[in-house]
């Protein structure tokens, strides 16, 4: 099957039971999606699939045929980070970084629809992501900062 991952057209041949996160990591070498719970709880496998923010451990890979997949790696670069990434850096909103695919892409999705979110809306949007370093307060602050900078 063919799909587009972070702007590159790729062709893969997944097994029927493969999930999208496994294909992205094992066949395509992406480290911008991670495997945490495999249960839809932790959010670290998050990517945008055809613009929708989804947990890729919950998607059978074959469903993504023809899809445009954007991982955290496509968002910004080390020298030119996305404004949300910049805000997370500025607010010390992460330590180990394991949660960043979900945290950042959830924030980007929220701000696309709700440019000036309340704290409750920010917390609600981020609630599908588990942070092992307990950085939730700073993550909320970072999203607030990114919204203000727009």
């Amino acid at each position: 099957m063919r799909l587009q991952v972070d702007g590159a057209h790729v062709q893969i041949d997944p097994d029927p039971e493969d999930t999208l996160v496994d294909v992205l990591r094992d066949e395509l070498g992406s480290t911008a999606v991670r495997v945490g719970c495999r249960n839809g709880d932790c959010g670290t496998c998050t990517a945008l699939v055809d613009g929708q923010c989804v947990k890729t451990c919950l998607v059978l890979a074959g469903r993504a045929e023809g899809a445009r997949v954007e991982t955290l790696a496509s968002l910004g670069t080390e020298t030119n980070p996305h404004p949300v990434q910049e805000a997370f850096l500025a607010e010390y909103a992460f330590q180990c970084g394991f949660c960043l695919p979900g945290m950042i892409l959830s924030a980007v999705t929220l701000l696309a629809d709700t440019p000036s979110p309340s704290d409750a809306e920010i917390r609600n949007a981020l609630s599908g992501n588990l942070c092992r370093c307990t950085g939730y307060v700073n993550a909320v602050r970072a999203v607030r900062r990114a919204a203000a900078a727009r």
């Binding site: 039971e17 999930t19 495999r38 249960n39 839809g40 451990c57 919950l58 059978l60 469903r63």
Partner: peptide, 25 residues
């Protein structure tokens, strides 16, 4: 499989007998 949020992880864990799967995506 509709949204997949319940049955996909159940299949991955082997809790669902998934000899045949029909994905509606």
């Amino acid at each position: 499989v509709s949204g997949g949020t319940l049955c996909v992880p159940a299949m991955v864990r082997g809790e669902l007998d998934a000899a045949d799967v029909v994905d509606l995506g």
